[in-house]
Simulated scan of single mutants.
Amino acid sequence: MSTRSSGPDLPVRRIDRILAYMALGLTILSIVCFFAVIIARPLGVEDFTTGVWPLIVVLPLLALPIAFVMIVVLLVMSFVRRSRANKGA
């Protein structure tokens, strides 16, 4: 069982908030694009090589790994910050 320090919680930094919201936004956008591709086929879209469809098809392939890396960076930054705060207390 872990013990909790009696001191106040650490404030959330701006970079933490930005990384969290960007990762969330990229994940939601990727999921929406993924479902758009799934739904487009039964609706009669035959050609995914014209218009905005190439972007919609490729976006989840790029955005999901980027969002994952952002979440890992956010976790590492949080662990380092908490470790430094606990050493100082």
Rank of each mutant, 00 (worst) to 15 (best):
A23V: 09
T49V: 03
A23P: 10
A67Y: 05
F34P: 02
C33Y: 01
A67P: 11
V45P: 06
V45N: 04
I38W: 07
C33W: 00
M1Q: 11
V80G: 04
F48E: 01
M22H: 01
I31K: 02
A63M: 10
I18Y: 10
L75R: 14
V80T: 12
S30G: 15
P65L: 03
L24D: 09
I28F: 08
M77I: 09
P42K: 06
R4E: 11
F35V: 12
N86E: 13
G44I: 02
F79V: 11
I56F: 05
A63F: 15
T50K: 14
L26H: 02
A67N: 08
L75W: 11
L55Y: 11
V45W: 03
R14N: 01
P60N: 02
T49C: 00
T3W: 08
F34I: 02
L61I: 13
D47T: 05
D16F: 07
R14F: 13
I71W: 07
S78R: 15
I71F: 08
S5V: 03
F34W: 11
S6Y: 06
R81H: 09
I38V: 15
L19Q: 11
I38S: 03
T49I: 01
V45L: 06
L74S: 11
V12P: 00
W53T: 06
F68E: 03
M77D: 14
R41F: 05
L64C: 04
M77P: 00
P42S: 04
P42L: 04
D16Y: 09
L10S: 09
I39L: 14
N86I: 03
S30D: 04
V72L: 13
V72R: 13
I38T: 11
D16T: 12
V37E: 05
L24S: 13
R4N: 07
P11W: 02
M77G: 14
K87V: 07
P11K: 04
I66N: 00
R17D: 12
S6H: 12
I31W: 06
M77Q: 14
I28G: 12
A40Y: 06
D16K: 00
K87P: 00
R84W: 02
F79P: 01
V58E: 03
S2Y: 06
